[in-house]
């Protein structure tokens, strides 16, 4: 299996390389410093989301509520900080947003683990509830002016890349450090803790995981709590980077993030998936959405291409499974059952 997963990530990598070569050939603008930096900057938030979705999908679940969680926690945090004229450390903003996320994640986790309900449907329901609270109860409108600490954090840049040809400048946002931190934490949790092994075990076969002594309910609950925290942080990152708080513009992101994670070789049936794959998948979709302009394709083609990539990407993996189950009659049972 290990060899196979490696192969899949290699294909995604190959797709990224060939796509970027095509874009470079057509526009001559792809491998410029400022384009790469732009890509990285728009990669940050989807990649943070991809980390939480990755863990959920590995555990055999599916979470579509994280954009709603992120929107609600970032909006609530921004509102609170504005009302108290907060001037302290930006760290507190992330902490607050993360805790709001944690509460919402815990609701998801409780519904999924205690009542043992299908994760997709629970999160569809909670997504609707969170958006209802955000748009109905809080009557959320765009907040144009965010607290100064957040503004400064979003403005902070690691370096500025300049395109020598046309002098266009792109800032590498310091928010990318948050992405690094989230990726490292996810990596450590997934690969160096018993919890991480539990996540894989539950996704592989939940009953066997119980037999093996994993506390499945607790692990499931904590997965959704983790997702909540990370989503809250991602939402806050988004506000800082956008320099304003738009309660509605994360909606619909769940589908692209799920697609990105699955493109990276994570099995929707759970039990397998890697961080590097999820990151590559996200990067592929980011390139597509960012580079249509470079190719002078009107942006309204974006949805079409995203759908096409999802179908082709998941189709290749799924078809390989079908083929291999035909080739190896002895394996057939386990594959079909999975």
């Amino acid at each position: 299996m290990g060899k196979k997963r490696l192969g899949h990530e290699f294909y995604v990598f190959l797709a990224i390389v060939s796509l970027s070569l095509i874009i470079q050939a057509r526009s001559g603008q792809f491998f410029t410093l400022n384009n790469i930096v732009d890509l990285m900057v728009s990669f940050i938030v989807p990649a943070i989301f991809a980390m939480c979705e990755l863990i959920v999908i590995i555990s055999g679940g599916m979470d579509v509520s994280f954009p709603a969680v992120a929107s609600l926690s970032m909006f609530a945090t921004t509102k609170i900080l504005l009302s108290m004229n907060y001037t302290g450390n930006v760290f507190f903003a992330f902490l607050l947003s993360g805790s709001f996320g944690l509460i919402m994640g815990a609701i998801n986790g409780a519904l999924i683990s205690i009542f043992n309900l299908p994760a997709l449907i629970v999160t569809l329901g909670t997504q609707s509830i969170f958006m209802g609270i955000l748009q109905g109860a809080l009557n959320a409108q765009e907040i144009a002016e965010i607290p100064k600490v957040m503004f400064d954090f979003g403005n902070a840049k690691l370096f500025v890349a300049t395109n020598p040809l046309n002098g266009l400048k792109s800032n590498m946002s310091s928010s990318i450090l948050i992405l690094f931190a989230v990726v490292i934490i996810t990596y450590v949790f997934l690969h160096f803790t018993m919890w991480g092994r539990g996540v894989y075990a539950i996704g592989g076969d939940s009953n066997s995981a119980i037999r093996a002594g994993f506390k499945v309910k607790q692990i499931k609950f904590s997965i959704y709590c983790f997702v909540g925290i990370v989503a809250g942080i991602a939402g806050m990152t988004r506000v800082c980077m956008m320099q304003n708080c738009q309660p509605n513009n994360l909606i619909g992101m769940e589908m692209t993030v799920i697609a990105a994670v699955v493109l990276g070789g994570t099995s929707v049936k759970g039990g397998s998936g890697t961080i590097i794959g999820a990151l590559l998948g996200t990067f592929l979709l980011t390139i597509i959405s960012n580079s249509l302009l470079l190719l002078s394709i009107p942006t309204y083609w974006q949805s079409f291409f995203t759908g096409l990539i999802i179908i082709i990407g998941t189709g290749v993996t799924s078809f390989q499974l079908i083929l291999s189950s035909h080739r190896l009659p002895s394996m057939r049972k386990s594959k079909n059952e999975a």
Partner: peptide, 27 residues
């Protein structure tokens, strides 16, 4: 025939179908 799980297949095709209608109408 291809074996994509229904949720992903229809997720992708939803994007595809609405993509085609966006292209046809330019949004």
């Amino acid at each position: 025939k291809i074996g994509i799980p229904p949720i992903l297949a229809t997720l992708g095709s939803m994007q595809l179908f609405s993509g085609v209608s966006i292209i046809l109408s330019k949004g």
